[in-house]
Write a protein that binds this DNA or RNA. Sequence first.
DNA 1: TTTGTTCATTGACATCTGTCGATGGATTGC
DNA 2: GCAATCCATCGACAGATGTCAATGAACAAA
Lengths: 119, 119
Amino acid sequence: MTANLPVIELDGGACCSPVIAEAMDADAAKQLATRFKAVGDPTRLRLLSLVAAHRDHEACVCDLTEPVGLSQPTVSHHLKILVDAGLLSRTKRGVWSYYALVPGALDALADVLRTPTAS
Amino acid sequence: MTANLPVIELDGGACCSPVIAEAMDADAAKQLATRFKAVGDPTRLRLLSLVAAHRDHEACVCDLTEPVGLSQPTVSHHLKILVDAGLLSRTKRGVWSYYALVPGALDALADVLRTPTAS
DNA sequence: TTTGTTCATTGACATCTGTCGATGGATTGC
DNA sequence: GCAATCCATCGACAGATGTCAATGAACAAA
């Protein structure tokens, strides 16, 4: 599930030669797009950064609302998107919900973007 | 411009300790979000993949409309977003517009996602 | 010139998305 | 039990986004 943008050697004639084999099928694209969309928002990027920078690499909602300057429901909304994308984990301890980076998740996403060593 | 998600060592007391230094400022987040948003769409992911997979690693619009199953204006629209994000380049040759991956652009984006080596 | 092809742009439209205030559940402390 | 805190969810709303049909510019070929 961490395949690169796959390169398939194709040869064709003139313009508009049929690209028979798609390098990435629609389902895989949709899956990946969901994860990238999660990172494609400035607030969520800052949330990821704040969580990573926070003590013990985890943070509760109340740690995050003030730095990003948004309401608590909005922050919870963004965090939910990041959790659904598999980038953050949520752990309830008492009244607090602690969010932390899922180990390897961002790296796996990064690997998808790695340019295949074009021959 | 290829900084990772920066980690700043913070120490605080109880919950809701102020996070003085933000790991990522709002401007940088907005810049990055634009690039990730460009990749956060299944069609655009497929377009990137198709371009990379195509002969000579470039493709014109007419090469791409049929594989993704969308209208020509829509494909042009997506390609423009990818060009604006600095991920694709456009070269006009005769009647055709050839799109190609900008070397290193995707890798630079990938580097941003590198998880800071959590101590 | 005339016809045909490629493609960017425009305008329109439905849907998705980000944001907030309000609400209520869960838990802690008095 | 009662009050306070944290937080997820709901409803609402403005703005962004993806899509298409129509149009026209640029170029090639006849």
